[in-house]
Computed example of a mutant assay.
Amino acid sequence: MNILIIYTHPNHQSLNYAFLQEVIRGSRENTAIKEVKVLDLYEEGFNPVLVFNEHKRRRDMHADPALAIYRDQLTWADKIVFIYPIWWGRPPAMLLGYIDQMFASGFAYRDNGGIFPEGLLRGKSVVCISTMKGPTHYPLFWLNNAHKSLMRKALCNYVGIKKVKFFEFGNMESPRGKQKEKLERVYRYFRQV
């Protein structure tokens, strides 16, 4: 299995970075995992801004040569792991800009004249590891699970990815947030997946 980790946090001293390290550590100890690649969107300097004009059209985004390396990474991966904080009830704009550009028609899905498109990323799986300052159940009770609906239904299911697992951790800025236990949980998952 090939794993692509898409890490989206600007601070390498953050808890999100500690989760990244545990995913890597667990994956390296798992004999079922052949290779792990990390795409750090901030370190990469990924430009999340969509630009469309007379020279760059949305319908051609799936073939944009500037995005070819990222398309190759997604094609290569069997499992895609997103690591990010929840800000204002959703992933960071940097990650959403990546999604806008990479999960394009002609690459991630194809319109087939039906209600739903044909997902072109079938057979892959996704793991979302997210952290937030607020309580763990805040997104469920106050936001109707908007974050999970966005990642599972609006993105993954739309492009043919049916296996989506969430590690959504709240209270991460609290001294009682059980950060060590949560880091260990993620490590164990990737060691055994």
Rank of each mutant, 00 (worst) to 15 (best):
F46D: 04
E168I: 00
V126F: 08
G106E: 06
R25W: 05
R191P: 02
Y138F: 12
T136V: 03
I3W: 06
V23M: 08
E22N: 14
F19A: 07
K56G: 01
G45H: 06
G45L: 05
Y98I: 02
A63F: 05
N53P: 01
M102E: 10
V81Y: 02
T31Q: 10
F107Q: 03
L183C: 11
R185P: 04
R58T: 05
R110Y: 08
L15C: 01
P91G: 01
D40A: 06
N2V: 09
F107H: 11
F46A: 07
L20S: 05
N53E: 07
W87Q: 08
P10S: 02
C156E: 05
L183G: 09
L39T: 08
R191H: 09
N112P: 09
F167W: 04
Y7H: 13
M1S: 13
R185K: 15
K153R: 11
A32K: 14
N11Y: 14
I115R: 15
K148L: 13
Q101A: 07
L15F: 06
K153H: 12
A63G: 00
K56A: 13
I6L: 08
H147E: 10
Q73L: 15
E44H: 08
L50P: 08
E43K: 14
I83F: 07
K165G: 02
S174G: 05
S130H: 00
F169V: 00
L96R: 07
L120Q: 07
D40G: 03
Y158M: 13
N2L: 09
S149L: 14
S149F: 14
D64I: 03
C156I: 08
I69T: 15
L39F: 03
V159I: 14
R188Q: 15
H62M: 00
E54R: 13
K34E: 12
R28V: 02
